[in-house]
Each structure stands twice: as structure tokens, then as C-alpha cells.
Design a protein around this nucleic acid. Structure first.
Lengths: 146, 146
DNA sequence: CTACATGTAACTAGTTTAGTTACAACAAGA
DNA sequence: TCTTGTTGTAACTAAACTAGTTACATGTAG
């Protein structure tokens, strides 16, 4: 199991739009950097648009950030690209036996524990912004150019 | 996307073995409580055995806990049932373009961030033991019988 | 009208999951 | 030893999801 790379690609897209600021970031251009098909990029940009993170219009080349860099967290992206439904990072087996003391109580016991773990994950993602990512990418770039 | 229910079933199995203590917990009996096929249970018990959490022997009915209840955390179960590989909860797109400043640095930037989030999740799971789960199940059972 | 971009449906191959059947290996009692 | 019942596994299935692709309708601007 693994959380879809849509999440990583979403972060890549937003970062690239910022770093490429001033120029046009078309789906084809972005696809060139991510190294995938433009349709894959358009689909993800569509999700980012629904979440209010980017603006993009039919027929007009280029996507732009709809918010300030520092106001977009990885959690926003994570939720936008729809990789995990609320409360459903962990799946719980469906129909335990109600005739068994464990079977009839295990779900109610487990679900809050799973939610807490999922919340811890989301909190970590919420503490990092795209601004942080952009800065780190540019720093690494600088270091490599020395 | 969703983390396999093997994890939830693994917790169910360990809890049931404890609550059923004194009696024999065969794969068929456990399957009755989980409400699935005994082979599914045997497979998961095999994983729990590899991780040293239960003892079970060919031909002899019944699995038993190999450790004290309070020494088995949800994280142990999570790792045992192999639902997520180390450092791979989030997948990162494979071949970003090295000719692009973002493409050639994004992986190195993202991977530690993902690791931190995964670690936060694991820390939450590590703070709960099967003993906690057993107690909660029995408390809920008591409350419902009033 | 032309050129080009986005939006989206439809299809593909590859993976993963949970479940199932079938059967070998093993243990213990009659 | 034979019978019964269990664990351990291989092999197969249907369903779901992923990432990628082709094709094309829709929209913009010169």
C-alpha cells in the first residue's frame, strides 16, 4: 500500500508554478518537469483548482497560485488531491460477528485510535507550507551550483 | 487509497486471543469472530508469528500471545502485518526532469517531509497497546450489558 | 479561421486486496 | 497405524485503484 503520488505531484506542481513565476506554466511545461503525461497534470491541477489553490481557465495557457505561498500547507494539497478520505486512512474490516464480545465492540474501539493516528499525520503535514518547500528546493539548487 | 484491513484484523486477532484466554483460538474460531475465511486469518497469524507476537504450531489448534499484552503496541502490529513499507507510506513520482531546477531537487526536499509525517503517525500508533484495546473492548461490553 | 490550450471521457496494463479452493504437512487420540 | 482435525501455502478470482494514453469537445486570442 502506498498513498498515491498525486500528492507528491501536486506539491511539485505548486512549487514549479512559483519557481517559474513570470513565465507561463502550461500543463505541457509542467508535465515536462514532472516527467509524465500532460493529462495527468491537468487532472491534478483540476483537483487543486477545486480546492481553491490555483486558478486556471479553459483555453488560456498557464496555471497560477490562488493563494499566498505561505498560506498553502502540505495538508491543503493532501486534502485537495483526494488521496485519502476523511477518517479512512486505515480501513476497518466490515462485518465482525455481533455474537462475539470482541466482534461487537472492536470497531468502536479501533476507529478512534485510527483517527488519532491519522490526525497526527495530518498535523505534521499541516505544519509545512509550499513556501518552505520552495525555499528548500532553491537552497539545494544553490548548494549544488557551488 | 486505504491502509489494508490486515492491520485492523491483526488487532482483532490479538484482542480475541486474550479475551478468549483459557480456550483454544483456532483459525476457524477467530474467522468466525472477524467474519471472514480461516485462510485469511492464518495468513495474518503467520505475519504476527514472524514478528514474534504470537506462537502457533502446525497441526496444533490455537494461537497464543508470545508477549505480554502491555508490550505489544499497535505499531508492532502495523509493522508485523506489512501494510506499509518503511519510508514508503507516501509514494513519490519516479523520474522528475533533471534539466529543471524543481525536478532535480524536489525529491530530496519532499522525502524528509513525508518521513516526518509518517513518523508522527507511527508515534501515535506506538503509544497504544493491545492491553489498552482489550480493556476498552471489555468496558464497552460491560456498558452495553447494563 | 487558425493555432493552441484546457477539460474530460474512455480505455489500458499493472498492482493490490480479500476471498476462495485445494492440498500437503503435522499432531494426537482411538 | 489409522482417523480426524489443524496449520501452512500455493494458486486462482473478482474488484478496486493507479498512472498513463488517445481522442476529442470546449474555449481563447490573434
Amino acid at each position: 500500500m502506498s498513498i498515491s503520488s498525486r500528492f507528491a505531484v501536486g506539491i511539485h506542481i505548486l512549487t514549479l508554478i512559483e519557481v517559474n513565476k513570470g513565465n507561463v506554466s502550461s500543463s505541457e511545461y509542467i508535465a515536462g518537469s514532472v516527467n509524465t503525461n500532460p493529462v495527468v497534470i491537468r487532472r491534478i491541477i483540476g483537483l487543486l483548482k477545486n480546492a481553491g489553490l490555483v486558478t486556471v481557465r479553459p483555453g488560456i495557457a498557464g496555471a497560477e497560485l490562488a493563494k499566498d505561498l505561505s498560506e498553502i500547507t502540505l495538508l491543503d494539497v493532501y486534502k485537495a488531491v483526494d488521496v485519502v478520505q476523511d477518517q479512512e486512512l486505515f480501513s476497518v474490516h466490515g462485518n465482525p460477528n455481533p455474537a462475539c464480545a470482541v466482534g461487537r465492540n472492536i470497531q468502536e474501539t479501533i476507529i478512534p485510535l485510527f483517527s488519532a493516528a491519522q490526525f497526527a499525520l495530518e498535523k505534521a503535514l499541516g505544519s509545512v507550507t509550499i513556501e518552505d518547500v520552495v525555499k528548500d528546493v532553491l537552497e539545494k539548487e544553490k548548494a549544488n551550483n557551488k
